[in-house]
Simulated scan of single mutants.
Amino acid sequence: MSENARPIIIRRKKVVKHHHGGSWKIAFADFMTALMALFLVLWILSTSTQGQRESVAEYFRTPLSVAMAGGDKSRASTSAIPGGGPDPIHQEGERMRIDVRSLPRPDESRSRLHRLQQRIEAVIAANKSLSELRSQMRMDITREGLRIQLVDTERRPMFELGSEQVAPYMRELLLTLAPLLNELPNQLSISGHTDSLNYVGGHRGYSNWELSSDRANASRRELVAGGLSPDKLLRVAGMSDRVPLNDKDPGDPANRRISLIVHNAESVDAIRTQGLSESPGGSMPLGD
């Protein structure tokens, strides 16, 4: 080999094999878990009732401090940072010794009414003879409480024509409702309604006023016979045809109905306050 000859250098490239770990599997499992949770929530929402969805929404809308102290949600701060005023879980410098689980939630009364509605629906659906009357029952939550309306049809009237005589299926329905209404301490009002068809004598003799009142009291007697506590009754009234269910058709059979209201505390107070203001000495003098 001559001195000017350059050495031959052979370079071999090292091939590094990269082994992927299992991190992608963890990410994929998290994704599938979240997807399963999403479909589970959607399924629960599709099978729940409107009342259940409102109760869940109200639960998350209620601030924690209000839920713990049982205060008024409308007066609570929407900020998560305390701004001032007394600590809701303290009183006069000492921690209140209370079990927060025993405190009623602000809308617990509304939830109880929703549960009563669901209970009534379940009992009616389970009774073969009463399930045929389900189309004549209308229940909803109003500002006064749970309203249960029992409406007439031409094929199946609740009372004998022009009479307070209760039909047999109406009697069975009222006797079934009585123990269910006893499950809550809420007070009850009963009102009778008629259509616009008047008696021959008009309003001078026996009229729709007397008929609606008689039907309301006939319903009251059936409920009491079924076990309803008489102390739960707050008001029994006849409304004639003044509050029609279908105001576009005064002669609609649905206007002939019995309306039961399971009152909330606010509506009971309003009725009693009105009664006190109308009683002798209950109103303030106008002055000289």
Rank of each mutant, 00 (worst) to 15 (best):
E108V: 06
A225I: 11
L197E: 11
L133Q: 14
G70N: 11
L38D: 04
E154G: 10
G205K: 10
A125Y: 13
R110M: 07
I89K: 10
M158G: 15
T194K: 12
R256V: 13
L180A: 09
P280T: 01
S219P: 03
D231G: 13
L45G: 09
G93Q: 00
V200L: 12
V224R: 00
R53K: 10
H263W: 04
N255T: 07
D214P: 07
E164T: 07
R11P: 00
R138S: 11
A178L: 04
I9S: 06
P82K: 05
A270H: 05
Y59N: 02
E3Y: 12
E154Q: 09
H20S: 15
S267R: 11
A126F: 01
E210C: 02
S102R: 15
Q274F: 02
A216E: 04
Q117S: 12
Q117V: 02
P157R: 03
N217Y: 11
R138A: 01
L64W: 13
S111K: 15
R134G: 04
P106Y: 05
S74M: 11
E3C: 13
A237T: 09
P7L: 15
R143Q: 13
Q52L: 09
R115L: 10
E121H: 08
T78A: 12
I44R: 06
V15K: 11
E144C: 09
R147D: 12
I190W: 03
S2A: 08
P86A: 13
A270Y: 05
P244V: 00
L184D: 06
T176D: 01
K14V: 06
A254N: 13
I124P: 02
A125E: 15
Y169S: 08
P82I: 08
R134V: 04
S135E: 14
M32I: 14
P63K: 02
S65R: 13
R97P: 06
S229T: 03
A34K: 14
Y206R: 15
L116W: 04
S267G: 08
L103E: 10
M139I: 00
G84E: 03
R242S: 13
I120N: 13
L188S: 03
Q117W: 13
I89E: 10
A69V: 01
E154C: 02
E94L: 14
E210F: 05
I44K: 06
T153R: 12
M137S: 10
L174H: 06
L211N: 08
E222T: 05
R11F: 12
A80P: 04
L184M: 07
P106C: 02
I190K: 10
A254F: 11
E222N: 09
M139Y: 02
K128W: 00
E154L: 11
E183F: 02
G281C: 03
G275D: 11
R235Y: 07
P280S: 03
S277N: 04
G202W: 00
P179S: 04
N217D: 12
S212L: 02
S219G: 05
E132K: 15
A80N: 05
E183P: 05
D99K: 03
Q91Y: 05
E54S: 10
Q149K: 06
R242E: 11
G70P: 09
A167W: 04
M139W: 09
T33P: 08
G93E: 05
P88E: 07
G70R: 10
P280Q: 08
